[in-house]
């Protein structure tokens, strides 16, 4: 396999919260430890429930926030703050909400050309417009949309515009932060197919963040399952879907709705609460909700092992 485009090693992000005049700030560990490799032309999906640190991960990868610790390299170059301006063009993002991610005061053409205006001032304005129009066609919009405002479009069309904007700078990595979860199911597949098509054409590496496992199954090659800021299971899609090793993954998979009324309903219902990300518990974060919990789970944090299909569990399922 070719060398990865992006390598993340032990990426972590902590926030200090609270901390008024008289109280000490607490440390919120949004992302504890995540490792991954992104390859050109392949999709890595990050799945997990709300608050597990998926979006924080996306913000670190897109250089909106600096990791508290850990390393991120892009094409062999370390992604550190002083290098952000030059590396930025290689990583772009598509947001979840197509209604908030486009500037309502700018026409579609201006939105598409803005990244070029900022980063490639040497390109003439006629050239810029030509490239923006070409990109508009590439994402399946019509030329007359160039002069319209975002509010004149439907959610799916807006997401196409957002994808076009992200691609204007020819990035190597595209972060998709729940790109279809705000769309109708009928539009979802159209946008997903567009994304798959663009990946093949432009050889992009996708970091696909989602909580929808059916969507993930459709687009991704590899999966990271996150729980409370850390990866609990990683591996190729087929293996993770066919035989999940971590109990949390199994529970997550069993909660996916299936369009087959005859299928056996072996749904696992989790009880108990998600531990607070403020508390730094010694044991496995999933222990309070796990049905296989034993004493060691509460005392010792399991490490992620067993690559390529790894799970962070003392008693992995097989």
């Amino acid at each position: 396999m070719t060398a990865p485009v992006m390598i993340a090693t032990a990426l972590a992000r902590h926030y200090e919260v609270g901390g008024g005049l008289f109280s000490k700030p607490q440390v919120l560990r949004a992302v504890l430890r995540v490792d991954f490799n992104l390859y050109a032309g392949r999709t890595l999906a990050v799945v997990g429930e709300s608050g597990c640190g998926k979006s924080t991960l996306a913000r670190m990868v897109t250089m909106i926030e600096e990791p508290t610790s850990g390393e991120l390299t892009l094409d062999g170059k370390p992604v550190i703050k002083p290098a952000w301006p030059e590396l930025r063009t290689d990583v772009q993002i598509v947001f979840q909400d197509p209604y908030g991610s486009l500037n309502p005061r700018q026409r579609v053409g201006t939105i598409l050309m803005e990244p070029l205006v900022i980063n490639r001032p040497d390109i003439s304005s006629a050239d810029r417009e030509a490239r923006a129009r070409e990109m508009l066609g590439l994402v399946g919009l019509r030329p007359e949309h160039f002069d319209r405002y975002p509010h004149m479009f439907s959610g799916g069309q807006r997401q196409r515009i957002a994808i076009a904007r992200a691609l204007m700078l020819d990035p190597k990595v595209l972060v998709l932060d729940e790109p279809v979860s705000a769309l109708d199911v009928s539009i979802q597949s159209a946008v997903l197919n567009l994304l798959i098509d663009l990946q093949e054409r432009l050889n992009l590496a996708y970091l696909f963040i989602s909580h929808d496992l059916s969507v993930v199954r459709h687009v991704c090659d590899d999966i990271i399952v996150m729980y409370l800021g850390q990866a609990v299971e990683t591996g190729p899609k087929e293996e993770v879907f066919a035989s999940p090793r971590h109990p949390y993954t199994k529970a997550l998979l069993s909660a996916t709705p299936r369009a087959d009324p005859g299928a056996a309903k072996d749904r696992i219902k989790l009880t108990g609460e998600l531990p607070s990300p403020l508390a730094n518990l010694p044991g496995c974060p999933f222990a309070p909700r796990c049905w296989k919990v034993q004493d060691i789970c509460r005392a010792e944090r399991p490490a992620l092992n067993g690559a390529p299909h790894a799970a962070a569990c003392h008693f992995p399922l097989d």
Partner: peptide, 26 residues
């Protein structure tokens, strides 16, 4: 707070551009 400001930042917009081109018209 809105995503379009974040995406302008991801596209590399500087502080002045963010202030007067992206946010001010809105």
């Amino acid at each position: 707070q809105k995503d379009y400001v974040t995406s302008a930042r991801v596209a590399g917009a500087g502080l002045l551009r963010l202030m007067f081109v992206t946010v001010l018209p809105n």
